[in-house]
Design a protein around this nucleic acid. Structure first.
Lengths: 337, 337
DNA sequence: TTGTAAGCGTTATCAA
DNA sequence: TTGATAACGCTTACAA
């Protein structure tokens, strides 16, 4: 009933437990016949080594930890999964854990123990997917363990490498696209609860001024309902925007009710854009113009970097920006609506 | 640089390491002054116990493992998160891991090592969220560790307890609803790749015959595109259905293009239903009539059960069926369309 | 090539 | 109440 250990196998095979250990951890150094004997015994007993006991003894778990900051964020799970598959193809074991984000007094924070739990497993490297509200837990990772962050910004003096899409470029694409369609009153709607959201907002402002337009901005919570009421408010003003640029797809989709109501009330068409190109935006009823942040490229790059500690060390504090693509769909195309 | 251990704390506090251990594992048994001294030293060094070394030594990790079968399934992540929060409130630590589902030769299967990895951590109990294609790995869990499955069916001779919604009841609700709106040609579209999907299909068949209707069924892959082409094919027949019942929300949403095209071609309104009441179905542009499987109740029940090993043992092999609710939205309401 | 023994960070047993 | 000492399942010098 109890899981067999290295000792059970050793006894069954008539060898010492170190020999059993060596069979599993080294290619050579044990004679073919003994190796066979050990393997046969292990097979019979149904033995597989306890990965975590190994990591405790050896000081390294020989796997890459993937920390997903928020399971409900479609783009996070997508990138995490892509990275995991890429690592798998490189023969790297991975272990994926989800952080717990709690909210106390309206402020989000990470349950530190979740991160610590993953760290205590002693990963060879760790890929953080998403913006961590608080990350003092990461400080306890030895310098020899590389950290790659994706879809997240770096802190000051951060030794990690960050991979994400170039928000400035993305917003430039969005604003240019809207401007070419004749929009001038363009309003941005999004949260300002983290580094990523603030940078995106700034990127919007910059893109607007570069196009000779004056940016207008309103903030909202990270919920569909929040986006919807923000959009409603924006459209209710006396000189309403003709285009709404949202922080991401989920918010854009959440606000489509307000937009539909506006149009139903006989007001002019309002263009809407999202960000992330999640599968939501593809749906035919939604058909949202959005930005593809090159999720696959981000995941691939993360997988490539994390397996090369020296490289990551040499790039400490750098941000790798992927060139985003604009995906035009019906939400910005009046004729198709 | 290295994380401090119990030994470092003991040295700093001038006590033995057993004492330090006791401070962290027992409420009493160590004098207040020593306790304080230990805590102070720990604080200064930034010590926190290594959870996994504890679990190795004590034989129990003192946490509940949550195994999410597929991160991309909205209902899985939702239930997993709800269960986690419920457990957190009961003061139970949790650790959430994602299974790797690979596909070889068109057949899905779980990367066994993922499950084993979670098991090797020695959880006090394990909640499986979703249907596992293959679960021999679970066999190595000692009988003393309770297993609760959610949104999944039980195998034969399964010692786990399963919590899910009553598909028969759900399908009865759906079919009755459609019948009351005058539909008689009702077609089911869904995959048949697992126990859950097959049971749902059967439930549909049963509900139809109970209503004196003859069921029609077609299968599709678990993708939006698959659902869409299946719907297209169904609607292209000479005597097309007037209502389409889908296995879940994602498929129903994926097929809305085919439905829209059908209506755009001047054909009569086609009612559509989903399953799961994910946030997709709520979106105003989608507004999908669906079944709420009582995710919250499922998660709560799972949390309640998993903390009571004896109870789970006494219920081995039982399935707890939650009474589902029908959520009526525009997708089955011609007048509102 | 193989076995012995110490140790990873912790708990648990048992004297003191 | 405290502190040795032996585990937990495994790795890893080091010795044979």
């Amino acid at each position: 009933m109890k899981r067999p250990t290295i000792r059970d196998v050793a006894a069954a095979a008539g060898v010492s437990k170190s020999l059993v250990s060596m069979v599993y951890s080294r290619e050579d150094g044990v004679s073919p016949e003994r190796r066979e004997r050990v393997l046969a015994a292990a097979q019979k007993l149904g033995f597989t080594p306890n990965q975590w006991a190994r990591s405790l003894a050896s000081g390294s778990g020989n796997f890459i930890g993937i920390l997903v900051v928020d399971l409900h964020n479609l783009i996070y799970t997508e990138v995490a999964d892509l990275a995991r598959r890429a690592l798998l193809e490189r023969g790297q074991q991975t272990f994926m854990a989800a952080a717990i984000i709690s909210e106390r007094k309206g402020k989000k924070f990470v349950e530190k123990s979740t991160i610590q739990a993953l760290l205590d497993l002693r990963p060879n490297g760790i890929i953080v997917v998403g913006d961590l509200p608080e990350e003092s837990a990461l400080a306890s990772i030895p310098d020899s363990v590389p950290i790659v962050k994706t879809i997240a910004t770096l802190r000051k003096k951060d030794r990690a490498v960050s991979i994400r899409s170039d928000d400035k470029e993305a917003m430039a694409l969005v604003v240019k696209h809207l401007r070419m369609r004749g929009h001038k009153k363009i309003q941005y709607i999004g949260p300002t609860d983290g580094a990523v959201s603030e940078q995106r907002l700034e990127a919007f402002n910059l893109a607007m001024t570069n196009q000779g337009l004056s940016p207008k901005v309103s903030t909202c919570e990270r919920t569909e309902a929040g986006a919807n009421s923000a959009a409603k408010a924006a459209l209710a003003e006396k000189n309403p925007p003709t285009a709404l640029v949202f922080f991401n797809d989920v918010l854009a989709v959440g606000a489509q009710q307000a937009v539909a109501d506006h149009v139903a009330a006989g007001k002019p068409f309002v263009a809407v854009t999202g960000f992330d190109n999640t599968y939501l935006s593809e749906l035919s009823q939604i058909s949202l113009t959005t930005i593809e942040p090159e999720k696959e490229a981000i995941a691939l790059k993360a997988a490539e970097l994390i397996t090369d500690p020296k490289l990551v060390a040499s790039m400490a504090g750098q941000e790798i920006l992927m060139v985003p693509r604009l995906i035009v769909r019906k939400s910005t195309d009046f004729s198709q609506k």
